[in-house]
């Protein structure tokens, strides 16, 4: 236990130093890259809760990521234009309002999708979650008011009282704090009574039902929690990149989130963050050298899936000699 706390603290401090390191070495893009990787890590970690701990292979997780992002984008659009959403809800650029709003809306969307999808299982579940994500994708493409295919520019990052959010480093630290808090939340979640029930359902749903657990309700609750996490990540991403687009919920984005989870290690806490970091770094580095970066990424992914069990986390554990 002690050792885990030390490692977490060390990683947090190292990550907190990134903006300084970037300035010292002149690699100013680092802050932006690590920030994005952290946000993708959150989205992947939220997916991992249902996928790794709950055994629900959702292929539409990017939808909630995108919806969270669009909530920020749409609220900013109305704030900027001085209008209101559906003539009822005025816009805002206050992060203390936009983030909770994003989390709630993403959670509602997840409740809707989950309530219908969880009636099926197996292949059908994978495909119906994909189908719902596609519906959201095309819905946002067709909304001309909010930029259609082009999406919404958010010219200024949401404000947070007392902080200068225009400062890149400040924004990065805000993201880092959210990522750390979300990690700790998930750590508690998987150890909670609810988390244990979810783990039981993954292993043997029939047995859990025979113990009196209404598995559908628990799975739905997990699905909603997971969607809320993705919504938070999406909202942060739009603040970070100052841009929301339908591309955030494209099906290949859902695939990428799954890759991050697998690459890092299914059903581990740190895995999705590591997977996100590795994949994102790999993509951006390779993209610098060749436009065909997808080829090595594809080959690497294929090798990882076919030859390793448990992703990079398993590798780290083996190297570290833990258990």
């Amino acid at each position: 236990m002690k050792r885990e706390h030390l490692i977490l603290l060390a990683v947090f401090l190292l990550l907190a130093l990134v903006p300084y390191a970037a300035e010292l070495t002149g690699q100013t893009s680092w802050t932006r890259l690590v920030g994005q990787a952290l946000i993708y890590g959150m989205a992947a970690a939220s997916l991992n809760f249902i996928l790794g701990y709950g055994g629900m292979v959702s292929f539409g997780h990017a939808a909630f990521f995108g919806i969270g992002g669009y909530v920020v984008g749409i609220l900013y659009h109305h704030f900027d234009a001085g209008t209101s959403f559906l003539g009822l809800i005025p816009g805002t650029d206050q992060m203390l309002i936009t983030l909770p709003a994003a989390v709630i809306v993403a959670g509602l969307a997840a409740a809707l999708v989950g309530a219908m999808s969880l009636r099926t299982g197996g292949v059908q579940f994978i495909m119906i979650t994909l189908a719902f994500a596609q519906m959201f994708f095309f819905l946002f493409i067709s909304l001309k008011t909010y930029g259609g295919e082009d999406g919404i520019m958010v010219r200024r990052t949401n404000s947070l009282p007392g902080l200068d959010m225009k400062n890149k480093a400040t924004l990065y630290w805000v993201v880092l704090c959210f990522a750390a808090a979300y990690y700790l939340f998930l750590r508690r979640l998987v150890q909670s009574s609810f988390g244990q029930i979810i783990a039981g359902i993954r292993q043997n749903e029939r047995r859990m039902a025979a113990m009196g657990i209404s598995t559908y309700r628990y799975k739905l609750a997990a699905f909603v929690l997971s969607g809320m996490g993705a919504g938070l990540a999406g909202a942060l991403m739009v603040n970070f990149l100052r841009f929301a687009s339908p591309d955030m919920m494209h099906w290949s984005r859902s695939g990428e989130l799954m890759i991050m989870v697998i690459l890092g290690g299914v059903g581990t806490l740190a895995g999705p963050f590591i997977g996100a970091g590795v994949l994102f770094t790999l993509e951006t580095t390779l993209a610098r050298y060749t436009e065909h970066w997808m080829l090595p990424v594809g080959i690497l992914l294929l090798i990882v899936v076919l030859t390793t069990r448990g992703g990079l986390m398993a590798l780290i554990r083996r190297l570290g000699g833990k258990r």
Partner: peptide
């Protein structure tokens, strides 16, 4: 009490 998400099982 199994919908508790922040206790310790």
């Amino acid at each position: 009490g199994n919908f508790r998400i922040l206790d310790r099982a």
